[in-house]
Simulated assay, not measured.
Amino acid sequence: MKIVVTGSLGNVGKPLATDLANQGHDVIVISSKEEKRKDIEQIGAKAAIGSIEDVNFLESAFEGANAIFALIPPNMLEADPRAYYKRIANNYANAVRKTGVKRLVQLSSVGADLDSGTGFILGSHDAEEIFNSLDGVSVTNLRPGYFYVNLFGLADMVKHMGFIATNYGGDTKFPMVDPADIATVAAEELSKSGGEKVVYISGEDITANEAAKKLGEAIGKPNLEWKKIDNEQMTAGLSQSGMPDVVIKNFVEMGHAIATGALREDYDKHQPIIGKVKLKDFAPKFAAAVNG
């Protein structure tokens, strides 16, 4: 099969493209950076270098493909993140229509069923609606939980303050998952001519306190706390980092949706695919980031 992977060689894209190439598929990886060409070719894939803002480029890359892995790379510089997600999703959708691709697997998110109050995840909600409207295309929306690698963003806080503090800490429970396990599921779905509309993926469904204990043990601080702070405190803390207001607003909204349980309501109605990687497996990498 000819399979196009968008999103370059990121946390999901690299293991996915590698798996697909090892399975003998004709894999094309889209990247905006020419310097990625060598890395893409080293894993046995072909590079398509260009901008996902350019529909003509996408049409050229999608031509003759049996399946597309649609990933919209986060862009924190966008003044309107939701409009950005819609724009890129429409670019992918238009290229799919023009080239006649019949299979699309999108990297979405837990909470993408909601149309308000989820911050950045609203972009995934909009993308799902755009892709689901494609006539004659079998679409599967992968809704993974919280990426383990996102914990790296908390490493400096742990290193310098000795605790974790977000507006969804304490006994808040949420699914977490490793990108490699997402890639495994994506590779399986892309190899099919059709599949379920929505597939949830989790590695482990644990509370913030339980996560803090496992991370703390890895860094030699078994009493590490993951404190739950209010939205105002979260906003103030992120403001000190110099983060743009629109990004802060989206992070706080998303965290609040995790804290209230709204983000996982639909997740709890389904049986997720459980990945192999657990938090204890990821914890040594977190420890290296903290201690390094």
Rank of each mutant, 00 (worst) to 15 (best):
M176E: 02
A186D: 10
L151E: 03
E204Y: 04
I130S: 03
P144N: 11
V177C: 15
D156Q: 15
L122N: 09
M161N: 12
D171R: 12
E196L: 11
M157R: 15
S202E: 15
D126T: 01
Y148E: 12
V137H: 10
V139E: 05
A187V: 13
D178F: 02
I164G: 11
L154C: 01
V158H: 10
M176H: 04
K197F: 08
S138T: 10
E188Q: 14
L151N: 08
L154W: 06
A183I: 02
T140I: 09
L142F: 01
S124W: 08
D178M: 03
I164R: 02
I201H: 01
F163R: 06
I130L: 10
V177D: 09
E188P: 00
T172P: 06
S193A: 14
F131P: 02
R143E: 14
E210V: 01
A187S: 15
S138F: 11
D126C: 12
M161K: 14
L190F: 04
E188N: 14
V199N: 02
T166I: 10
D171M: 11
V199Q: 08
E196F: 05
I130C: 07
S138P: 06
T172Q: 09
V158R: 13
G153A: 06
A180I: 07
E188K: 13
G153C: 00
V137E: 07
R143P: 10
G162Y: 00
L134I: 13
D126E: 12
E189P: 01
N132Q: 08
E129D: 03
V177I: 15
G194H: 13
D205T: 15
T140R: 11
S138V: 06
I164Y: 09
I182F: 09
N141Y: 06
F147Y: 12
I201S: 06
R143L: 06
G169C: 06
I164P: 09
I206F: 10
L142K: 05
K192R: 09
T184H: 10
N167H: 04
Y168L: 02
G203S: 01
A155Y: 00
G162D: 12
T140P: 07
K192L: 10
L134E: 05
N209G: 03
I164Q: 05
Y146S: 01
L190T: 07
I164F: 04
G194D: 11
V185Q: 09
G203Y: 00
T140A: 08
N167I: 13
I164V: 15
T166P: 04
G153N: 14
A212Y: 12
E204R: 03
A187D: 05
G169M: 13
D135S: 15
V198Y: 05
I164M: 13
D135P: 11
F131E: 05
G195C: 04
S202V: 12
G153P: 00
D156K: 15
V198H: 02
S191I: 01
D178Q: 02
E188T: 15
V199S: 03
A127Q: 14
I130K: 13
K192T: 07
A186W: 14
T172R: 07
E128I: 05
D171T: 15
L190N: 03
L142P: 08
N141S: 14
